[in-house]
Design a protein around this nucleic acid. Structure first.
Length: 286
DNA sequence: GCGTCCAGGTCTACC
DNA sequence: GGTAGACCTGGACGC
């Protein structure tokens, strides 16, 4: 039986700015209808999966599900998590409020970065973004969902651990990343690694980053991207795209060393990773 | 049609 | 600890 759920939203929350905060809305099992501003996602509890559509309606969020499983509490918790409804960005807005270039961020209530319901999903997707074009990232993630996911949901670690290197090469088209995925999935299944624990880790950011880098395929960029997704913004997560945007926006189109980029954002302290991301993506929100 | 380059980098061997 | 070279894929580009 279809089910409709509602969630109240915080005052400083913008559905559009959050959904469009980075490329995740374009990766399965997310899909975005920009005409009607509806974000689709396939929710799962590991056993049951259900496609859902999230939209803003009368100042709150409306979630339409085609059936009642997984349980409403699980879906509501997932929506709160992916849209970062419980994140407190007041300090971030304070830090940037006197910066002319960044005034739009507060105005559009931007800054919440869309994420997946689980760190596991964000981790696998982040590995899919490394050393390839965005088109290839989408292709790999689409293949993972279509060929290993339960009814359109993102695959579990169990599902990913059950395949061999040949499968990842031929079916997922993930190239050299296949062995990385298998090793990662096996560690998660065995309990040796619990990516979800990174969300509430007591480790200092530098130490947590080193933990993340123990996963094969996760280097500086990937770890700092994941840190942003678990709510720590003191790494810039520089990749070729972010660097090219900085050169265009702050260096007359000329390349420069990373240290110059780091110096530029140092004054924003623990928020610098979120500041550079907002600074470089302003046009997306125009 | 073919070869080269490179994209939302990382790993390993070697120094 | 720093660095060169290898690594899958597939689209863009030049010829």
């Amino acid at each position: 039986m279809p089910q409709t759920l509602f969630i109240d939203i915080p005052e400083d929350f913008s559905f559009r700015s959050t959904v469009y905060s980075h490329g995740w809305c374009d990766l399965a099992p997310f899909s975005l209808d920009t005409e009607n501003w509806r974000l689709s996602y396939v929710f799962t509890d590991g056993k049951n999966s259900v496609p859902g559509v999230i939209a803003e309606e009368d100042g709150r969020l409306r979630i339409d599900l085609v059936k009642a499983k997984p349980r409403a509490e699980k879906v509501l918790a997932d929506v709160r998590h992916i849209l970062r409804l419980d994140d407190d960005l007041r300090d971030f807005y304070d830090v940037i409020q006197h910066n002319d270039r960044l005034r739009w961020v507060g105005k559009l209530r931007a800054g919440r970065l869309l994420r997946s319901p689980t760190v596991w999903e964000d981790l696998v997707k982040t590995i899919c973004t490394t050393n390839c074009s965005w088109a290839l990232t989408k292709n790999m993630v689409n293949n993972l969902v279509a060929k290993l996911g339960n009814k359109g949901a993102f695959p579990t670690a169990h599902a990913m651990a059950s395949q061999d290197e040949e499968f990842y090469k031929q079916e997922i088209r993930s190239g050299y990343r296949g062995p990385y995925f298998i090793e990662l999935a096996e560690k998660v299944v065995s309990g040796e690694l619990d990516p979800q624990s990174w969300l509430h880790s007591d480790l200092p950011t530098a130490a947590l980053k080193e933990e993340m880098k123990k996963v094969k395929g996760v280097g500086d960029y990937a770890a700092e991207n994941l840190l942003k997704l678990v709510g720590r913004y003191d790494g810039l997560a520089l990749d070729s795209w972010l660097r090219s945007q900085f050169y265009k926006n702050h260096n007359n189109g000329k390349t420069c060393k990373d240290i110059k980029i780091e110096r530029h954002y140092r004054k924003f302290g623990e928020w610098r990773g979120l500041v550079i991301w907002c600074d470089m993506t302003e046009k997306w929100h125009a």
